[in-house]
Design a protein around this nucleic acid. Structure first.
Lengths: 215, 215
DNA sequence: AAAAACGTGTCAATGAATTGACAGGATAAT
DNA sequence: ATTATCCTGTCAATTCATTGACACGTTTTT
């Protein structure tokens, strides 16, 4: 009944396809060929066809792909047709920034709660969501059908909080803390290590300078 | 004189090595073998040796790697021994969160300026840096030796701002806007597409639920 | 001082991802 | 209606990345 395992390399490209297709759709474009899309996205047409074909034949010979259909289909594959409740743990600058970012709702991610250990922040309001003390975290997760926890706390407490979340039935953690979480199989973790990303940038700046002899 | 090209797959792993080595160093560990490190980091020892060896022999048979030396060496490879001035364009929640994040300084990234088009924000202070109007962006970049621009503005204006930055000598863009920037060769771009990351998480939640039949 | 254990650097083997090529069905042009 | 063009799905070839194996120099033990 289920399809074969799809590689994470392919999954990693789906959001980008989704974005480009959404733009084409908004422009009123009805159909697109892998050739056209490849020029737009600067990838090979072969890769596009190969990628889409992992999920079954979405296209038609001589016609190409129907933009609206393909857009919806990729959204469905990504699970964006389902609703997922999420909470944010850590009401610092980054946590608040994410809480205030409204576009997640558009994709089915519903902001349900926010937690911090700092007593001074308790009761404050971020986009209609009240900040609660960490003591309430576990019961809140259990009782409110929370799928995803966004972790924007210092690394020191991240592992401990993640374990608590796991014990109370969280399905996934979007981890902005600068540690690797060690969780039971079946709990999905997506790391956003901002400083790692900045270091990569730093490497590439220096590499380029060396290559070209730029000062 | 210069080494052969290193694959981005390897570069992408360097920050994580750097982090683990830093932790070992702080714990006072003097030496580590690829075997020990592989258990700690959950990767193969072979990959570790292969990766390090791209940059020359850092280890010694029968001894392993000197933690402090290796840590410094990887830092140097990543360019963290150099200073890079950066600015933030877009003083919304995310821009401020990044501006307030102080750890970047520790790695040689110096916060020099912040820009926004909203007149009401001009003059406000984010960690000692005054928010300036967008009109001053280009001259500021030219006159203050700015290497990196952090882009935390809506996608609509991102391409235009990026072009201006390019014309005024920026070396790299850390792009949080949800578009692919099209810049002349030699300007490094590192994308942080948060919603892409969240979509991947979403996919993996659903995949796991299907695999296991969880409701 | 000799023997045993350790552990790197490197080469070869395997595995994964990307690209190229093309048969043949669908569309568009004549 | 026929022909030419388009363009997918797929297989094969190639390229890239990861893993395994081991010769040999270092360290540690006896």
């Amino acid at each position: 009944m289920e399809e074969k395992e799809i590689s994470q390399a392919v999954i990693g490209r789906l959001p980008r396809y989704f974005r480009y297709l959404g733009e084409l759709k908004d422009e009123g474009v009805e159909r697109v060929s892998s050739q056209e899309l490849s020029e737009l996205m600067k990838v090979t047409a072969s890769q596009i066809r190969q990628d889409f074909n992992n999920f079954g034949g979405f296209g038609q010979q001589g016609y190409g792909y129907n933009v609206e259909f393909l857009y919806k289909e990729i959204g469905r594959i990504l699970g964006l047709d389902k609703k997922h409740n999420f909470i944010i743990v850590g009401a610092g600058n980054l946590g608040r920034a994410l809480g205030n970012y409204m576009n997640f709702e558009r994709r089915g991610f519903i902001f349900k709660g926010m937690f911090d250990k700092n007593p001074e922040l308790i009761g404050e309001d971020v986009r209609g969501v009240r900040i609660m003390p960490l003591e309430r975290l576990e019961s809140f997760v259990r009782e409110n059908d929370i799928d995803i926890a966004v972790l924007t706390i210092p690394k020191a407490s991240a592992e401990e909080v993640a374990e608590k979340l796991a014990q109370n039935g969280i399905r996934a953690i979007w981890n902005f803390a600068h540690v690797d979480l060690n969780l039971p199989e079946g709990i999905q973790v997506e790391n956003v290590h901002l400083s790692d990303s900045l270091m990569k940038l730093s490497y590439n700046i220096n590499r380029y300078m060396h290559e070209t002899g730029t000062e």
